[in-house]
Write a protein that binds this DNA or RNA. Structure first.
Lengths: 164, 164
DNA sequence: TTAGGTGCAAACGTTTTGCAACTTG
DNA sequence: CAAGTTGCAAAACGTTTGCACCTAA
């Protein structure tokens, strides 16, 4: 389930892609930008801006929200990040490089996000769209529920308290 | 394409379910609440709060946002409305009674929402969840793209340019 | 040097809430 | 009458933006 398949060198590749993008767009490579990007590349989950900010501030407490928002937007433009909106109103970002298309399973108990891919579903989507004369540009499939771990947590939690 | 399958009597049934809910919760039946509910029941599309407010104000211009928000929340609690969040940041509501489970196809050109249902996809979702030991409580499948009508609109609008 | 970036705080758009006046039961 | 509801305006929420100062190229 790890997002990074190749370890460290994958990160430096992404770093390279990013600085390439920065260069081509005549933007500047700054300490803050690189810090945000590195934190993002080193993570393998679906981080919110808030979470990224917390991680980044461990290394530089002066960094503000705006920089994180702006940098993630750049990363998205560079094709390195994908913005996702699950059912909790806040944006989360995942790495897009090296990821084939996949869908999400969100645990409503612990908030963890699992990824999965299923070609058969993809093909069915295409055929449904075809029937409608609809031209798909993107899609989103999310399963909400309770993950394996939380099912047991939930049970023991309920076992402890009779009823509220 | 029509959401209401039985016509008028379906509306009165919903009205009944709603006032039942109101009664059981020891809430009060008010002119505003009933107006909002009726407007909602009479519609068959995916309305935003803003749109519902506009419709309601035709009959009573004094009604405010808060009442619409509060009433839609009640309708959702009563099992009569489902809140949806497509990729435009604003909440839309659809009627849930009499609706079998279905998914959505959203035209990113005109904003129209089409519904579809596919048992095979549902079954595949279940089997994927089972593989993960995940217990599904709900899910969301949305196809984004361009609907039949808009494909031609788009072509004539971009008459001079190359086709994708 | 200067285009561009930063952090702050204020602005945003949607949704929620506190409250005094007002209905409903 | 008491409890619940209303409309308003203010607050709250995540996000974006204007701006004076700063920094990379």
């Amino acid at each position: 389930m790890s997002a990074t398949k190749g370890g460290k060198d994958q990160i430096s590749e992404k770093r390279a892609v990013f600085s390439d993008f920065i260069g081509k767009q005549k933007l500047k490579s700054t300490r803050q930008r690189n810090l945000v990007a590195d934190v993002f590349f080193a993570s393998d989950s679906h981080l919110s801006i808030e979470e990224i900010l917390q991680l980044v501030r461990r290394k530089d407490p002066a960094i503000g929200y705006a920089t994180v928002y702006r940098t993630l937007k750049l990363l998205a433009q560079a094709g390195l990040a994908d913005e996702r909106h699950f059912s909790d109103g806040i944006a989360r970002f995942e790495q897009s490089m090296g990821h084939a298309h996949h869908d999400h399973m969100v645990c409503t108990f612990c908030g963890k996000v699992f990824e999965f891919a299923n070609d058969q579903i993809e093909r069915l989507q295409e055929s449904i769209a075809r029937d409608f004369g609809f031209e798909i540009t993107s899609h989103k499939l999310e399963l909400y529920g309770i993950c394996k771990d939380c099912q047991s947590k939930k049970q023991s939690q309920r076992a402890g308290r009779a009823k509220a």
